[in-house]
């Protein structure tokens, strides 16, 4: 009888993960949303573009700017980045508590594998899912949009500025943005995962993690002095930092500090999960 390697446990976790119908909800949702946006912009993109640039056209004369794949990808990313944490929480919130609720955790924890190894393998399986979700989003939002709409510059509209990113420069920025989105989703993943280790039923961690993301996002959108003081400490403030890759010049200092903030959150959430899971009595 040989001892299990982490790799073999991760493989087992992945088999379980990818056999659950729930795992595919996120992929179906992303596919539906992206295809809908692409279809809408393909059929009526000109009007949407005119609407977006309406206020600018009063001050500037905008010429040569047309809807293109890069722009569509940017719009999709902006739209979906709000919903994706919910999709991640839906699956990660269930990964440990679901096994406790169904009783399969008993079988799992009476195998010759340490609790830490079991938990880390579950975390890696959840991260693989998150990465797959991001890659799928990238394939649909970036490559399919380029195929349908062609290449072009990206115009980033802000309340006080307009930034144009040249087509040749866009690809690498999207790569960084997708990586940052992955890191952001990993924090949500870790948060839902931690709640999942604390709970004995799968609904509570899913609902709590979704509620926290929604609450933090709402706080982040209001420019009220009280909220302003707490905003820097909310992880949702840092999960939208991918947008900064579309600034000119890129504010690397802000991106690095947000990256560190997110990594620290991952370490804290994962550490708390491992500590609690190792101490927990399984009475169910």
């Amino acid at each position: 009888m040989k001892m299990n390697s982490l790799y073999s446990i991760v493989k087992i976790e992945c088999v379980k993960y990818w056999s659950k119908p729930r795992t595919y909800i996120g992929f179906i949702a992303i596919t539906t949303i992206v295809l809908l946006i692409q279809l809408a912009l393909y059929t009526d993109g000109k009007n949407y573009w005119d609407f977006l640039t309406q206020s600018l056209s009063q001050s500037f004369e905008i010429e040569g700017m047309e809807f293109n794949g890069n722009m569509v990808c940017f719009i999709i990313l902006q739209t979906l980045i709000v919903q994706m944490p919910l999709m991640v929480a839906l699956v990660s919130g269930d990964i440990v508590s679901g096994e406790v609720q169904s009783g399969t955790i008993r079988s799992l924890l009476t195998k010759p594998v340490s609790r830490t190894k079991i938990l880390i393998s579950k975390f890696i399986a959840a991260e693989i899912y998150t990465l797959a979700l991001i890659i799928w989003l990238g394939v649909l939002a970036y490559f399919l949009s380029l195929f349908l709409f062609g290449k072009g510059d990206v115009v980033v509209l802000k309340s006080d500025a307009l930034t144009v990113i040249r087509s040749a420069d866009v690809g690498i920025r999207f790569l960084f943005a997708f990586f940052m989105a992955f890191l952001s989703l990993s924090v949500i993943n870790c948060f839902a995962f931690m709640l999942s280790t604390f709970s004995n039923n799968s609904i509570t961690p899913i609902v709590i993690s979704m509620s926290v993301v929604i609450l933090f996002t709402i706080i982040g959108t209001f420019d009220i002095p009280l909220f302003e003081s707490i905003k820097p400490y909310l992880f949702t403030t840092h999960t939208i930092v991918w947008r900064n890759f579309f600034d000119n010049p890129i504010d690397w200092e802000l991106i690095i500090s947000s990256t560190c903030f997110l990594i620290v959150h991952i370490i804290v959430f994962l550490g708390a999960s491992i500590y609690y899971f190792n101490k927990k009595d399984f009475l169910q």
Binding site: M1, N4, K16, S19, K20, G103, T104, S107, K111
Partner: peptide, 20 residues
């Protein structure tokens, strides 16, 4: 308790693999 979404065969194999 088992993984209801898997077959009995798959459950058995996974359980055994976890036991090394």
């Amino acid at each position: 308790d088992h993984y209801n979404y898997l077959s009995a065969h798959k459950n058995l194999v996974l359980s055994s693999k976890l036991s090394g």
